[in-house]
């Protein structure tokens, strides 16, 4: 790792191992993963179900702790077992987007975003965040009044409104049709470009890999292949 690379590394994972269960039932979900996420890059993680990509994302986002190995955020080791530290880490630096949108049903689109901006240090305005994902006209809608794609874009707006350093997306288009999926990916791409948010995206969809700077392929808890795209395909041009 060069000096310049190290300086622009947002997150470094070293030799991460995650073991579930014990004895005969032991499952090694991660089996010695090293990964560095750089400033402003968009990385796509692909692989079969159970290959370990979600486990990695959860650990990087502070939702789970590894069995061994360490995670450095901006050069500082993260104590992933300390609830207080980890809450603070998620609160200030990490944005999540899941396959299921997990919006708060009792809050409008704008309020769902405001939920995050109220506790963030330097947020962008909820309206602005929603405008960025193309929902500037649906501010007062409750989740029940939005389509699946719209709900997912609110989730993205909510994730990025605090201007996180890291945006972690676990199959954000998994529950959507392709047309809606493209809209969602475009929104992610725009955020990555305009705000420079380092973005890691899990997908089952090979086509999505085209929009990444780097693509990591997972198998049996390891990264078996890393591809660097010299040219990023714009999300609108993706087809599947």
């Amino acid at each position: 790792m060069g000096a310049q690379e190290a300086a622009s590394a947002v997150l470094v994972a070293r030799n991460l191992v995650k073991v579930y269960g014990s004895g005969e039932l032991e499952i090694r979900a991660l089996d010695g993963v090293d990964l560095t996420l750089y400033e402003s890059e968009l990385i796509v993680l692909v692989g079969a179900s159970g290959s370990g990509k979600s486990t990695l994302l959860n650990i990087l986002g502070g939702l789970d702790a590894p069995t061994s190995g360490e995670v450095l955020f901006r050069g500082q080791p993260l104590d992933l077992r300390n609830d207080r530290t980890i809450t603070e880490y998620r609160r200030r630096h990490v944005g999540f987007v899941f396959q299921f949108y997990n919006l708060i049903a009792s809050l409008t689109a704008e309020e769902n975003v405001a939920l995050v901006t109220e506790i963030a240090d330097a947020p962008i305005a909820p309206r602005e965040a929603l405008a960025m994902v193309g929902l500037g006209d649906r501010l007062q809608a409750f989740p029940a009044e939005l389509s699946g794609g719209e709900q997912q874009r609110v989730a993205i707006a909510r994730a990025i409104a605090k201007q996180p350093q890291l945006l972690l997306c676990d199959e954000p288009t998994g529950a959507l049709d392709s047309k809606t999926g493209v809209l969602v990916l475009s929104a992610l791409e725009r955020v990555n470009r305009e705000l420079g948010t380092t973005t890691a995206l899990i997908t089952h969809n090979r086509a999505t890999a085209g929009m990444a700077d780097r693509v990591c392929r997972f198998s049996d808890g390891r990264i078996i292949e890393t591809t660097v795209n010299t040219h990023r395909t714009p999300a609108e041009q993706l087809e599947w």
Binding site: L63, T87, E88, R90, R91, V94, V116, I119
Partner: peptide, 16 residues
């Protein structure tokens, strides 16, 4: 439960 878990993920503390 789901909503509360979401809030935890968004960075709200257990207390909040």
């Amino acid at each position: 439960g789901r909503e509360l878990a979401t809030l935890r993920v968004l960075g709200f503390s257990s207390g909040e």
